[in-house]
Amino acid sequence: MKKIAVLNDLSGMGKCSLTAAIPVISVMGVQACPLPTAILSAQTGFPSYYCDDYTDRMDILMDEWQKMDFHPDGIYTGFLADAAQADKAVDFIQRFKKKETKVLVDPVMGDDGEEYPIYTEELCEKMRMLVREAAVITPNITEALLLLYGREKMHTEWQKISGFSGEELLKYVQTIGSLLTEKFDVEAVITGISHEEDGAKYISNLICKKAAQTWVTTKKEGGSYSGTGDLFASILSAGMVKGTDTAASVQKAVNFLAKGIHDAVEEGTDRNEGICFETYLYELADVK
């Protein structure tokens, strides 16, 4: 069975990070091998939570895996709390990545034109190092701009695009996608692009390769929910090690998330609790 090493935190509440990645990767027929970066009582969107930082224990876990001659088919990095953790992720890739290892990096740094409290320019530079090791990256627009330009110019660019029409925004994202693929020599999936067309609201994702760009779009329902990015990236990482085309994986992720979001809206689920995805996990499995 193929294996993916997943570097992310474990949050008891919130259906994100490892609690999202493990069931998704597993049901898709790939073994998820978690390397926790922190243990939290609940994800950080909740008003109160406890966090046990694992940065100083990540080396110990990596050393033990090396003793076992561990060779993952894929490596997936998600939320990293600071530059020190990002440095550990870089070290992990340098230790365990082989020529055939598929790396997916979700460069979690911000959203909606604002960087997260964890953001520093040092963290961003480490993320750029990770991105250069990846086969696929999954930034939102904010994170794409941070990777390209850093914090100051990201804010300048965000002010510029805030008044764009839907069509103007999509064209702008295509330009950003081309810049990402050229600068980092990577396949980029720019996620969660919210726009309107003829009065209807949509969410789009742009798949950017050097020779082509592909849009995958669905109607928008509800707001922002914890863990949707983790679920999305997990589906892509499992598909990647199985040789699935990225566009097919993105479409599968979009269909899967749409159903879980719909149920969360119907139930009135708080955004911090995440979406109702468990019922639809079976749809991710390959039927033989």
Rank of each mutant, 00 (worst) to 15 (best):
K3R: 10
I4V: 08
I4A: 07
M13S: 13
T19I: 13
A21F: 03
S26T: 15
M28Y: 01
V30K: 01
V30M: 06
Q31H: 12
A32K: 00
C33H: 03
P36G: 03
I39W: 10
L40Q: 04
T44G: 02
G45K: 00
S48L: 01
Y49P: 00
D52G: 11
Y54Q: 14
T55N: 13
M58S: 05
M58E: 13
D59L: 08
M62E: 15
D63G: 09
E64A: 14
Q66E: 15
P72H: 03
Y76G: 10
Y76W: 05
T77L: 08
G78A: 11
G78K: 08
L80A: 13
A81N: 12
D82E: 06
Q85W: 02
A86S: 15
A86R: 01
V90F: 12
D91M: 13
F92N: 04
F92V: 08
F96R: 08
K97S: 09
K99P: 05
E100H: 14
E100K: 14
E100C: 07
K102W: 03
K102C: 14
V105L: 04
D106K: 09
P107C: 12
M109E: 06
G110R: 07
D112G: 01
G113L: 12
E115F: 13
Y116G: 00
I118R: 10
Y119I: 07
Y119M: 09
E122L: 06
L123A: 14
C124R: 11
K126Q: 14
L130T: 05
V131P: 00
A135D: 15
I141H: 04
T142C: 07
A144S: 13
A144P: 00
A144F: 03
L145R: 10
L146C: 05
L147W: 08
Y149N: 07
G150Q: 11
G150N: 07
R151M: 10
R151F: 11
M154Q: 12
W158Q: 09
Q159K: 12
K160W: 00
S162V: 11
F164H: 10
F164V: 04
G166K: 06
E167L: 09
E167I: 11
L170M: 12
V173L: 03
G177K: 00
T181F: 02
T181Q: 12
E182S: 15
E182N: 14
K183R: 15
F184P: 00
D185H: 14
H195I: 08
D198R: 08
A200C: 09
A200Y: 04
Y202N: 09
S204N: 07
L206K: 01
L206M: 03
I207G: 02
V216Y: 00
G222H: 05
G222D: 11
G223Q: 00
G227H: 05
T228F: 07
D230V: 07
G239F: 06
V241K: 01
G243Y: 03
S249T: 10
A253G: 04
A253E: 12
A258I: 02
I261R: 05
E266A: 15
E267Q: 13
D270T: 07
R271Y: 06
R271M: 11
N272T: 12
E273I: 02
E273S: 11
G274L: 01
E278G: 05
V287L: 10
K288L: 09
K288M: 07
